[in-house]
Design a protein around this nucleic acid. Structure first.
Ligand code: FES
Ligand code: FES
Lengths: 143, 143
DNA sequence: ATAGTATCGGATATTTTTATCCTTTAATAT
DNA sequence: ATATTAAAGGATAAAAATATCCGATACTAT
């Protein structure tokens, strides 16, 4: 479904969002430990998220990553889009060059509903929302 | 969503199912032309499907692949399972070792519904069903 | 100013997926 | 029997995804 890179991105963003706003600066090491991901690879992914302004970073001592106010309203859809592209939301399930009503693949009609279900869910689920479940121990980021 | 191998497998199986039953023997070359897939790679995938008894093959002149009676009732779920495994139907969306109610990831509840939607669709969609859409020109296998 | 720290970014390595090549095996037709 | 044909299977190659390494950059603290 999602690439590993994308899973790490989502979990990392949620983890940062669980930290108290304004006091949420956190380093790579802590993040990758919290989500159980390879450190160096996670760094690459965080770099992309920073470049795309979904995340901000500060270098040097007491440096790290943080997500301010508005950033916590980011929807999962956007993260997937930035890391995996939106093939999953718009592409053809069976590999046709493009998904369209005019030239539908064998599963187009049935699949479209699922894809929209997924896209809708991802578009209405924010980091804030997810962070709550982690904070109160209902949901988990690793193992 | 699905691997290329899996997409080729599904389209190939549907293509064979569009041919008149009992007179449906068709060679690799024709199949990969019909679904626009790389020949040698497609051969590998068909071999797996033959090994798993979703397809049968005959060597030599007038040889090829065919799907008998019962085979046409095969559901897409089974093809995905054989080629990609059932990670997509049972695995955790965010990469936890296993998906479970006891230790749910951040999107577990929301994702479960989508996964079940997908699994249900794939379990109730057969080659026969798909073949009809191709035969009457409503759906397409390539481009 | 200087040393220390943490992210950035480029280079490289490993693994997995996708794709090709070629020999072997089994069936057909002459 | 023999030549021909098409799938099977093993070996290899290319591409993409995942993962690691290390010097450069920017910031902090002393
Ligand atoms: S054409 Fe395949 S999903 Fe729309
Ligand atoms: S635990 Fe992640 S989808 Fe169920």
């Amino acid at each position: 479904m999602f690439s590993k890179a994308c899973k790490y991105a989502i979990n990392a963003m949620i983890y940062i969002s669980t930290l108290p706003e304004g006091n949420d600066r956190v380093g790579l090491k802590e993040i990758s430990k919290a989500i159980n991901s390879p450190e160096a690879f996670t760094a690459k992914i965080l770099q992309i998220l920073v470049r795309e302004n979904l995340l901000s970073s500060i270098k040097g001592p007491n440096g790290g990553f943080e997500i301010h106010e508005e950033g916590r309203k980011t929807h999962l859809y956007r993260i997937v889009q930035v890391i995996d592209g939106d093939q999953i939301f718009t592409g053809c399930a069976l590999g046709l060059e493009k998904c369209s009503e005019d030239h539908p693949c064998a599963v187009h009609n049935k699949f479209k509903a699922i894809r929209e279900h997924l896209a809708g869910m991802m578009m209405t689920t924010s980091l804030e929302d997810m962070a709550k479940g982690i904070q109160n121990g209902t949901n988990f980021l690793k193992i």
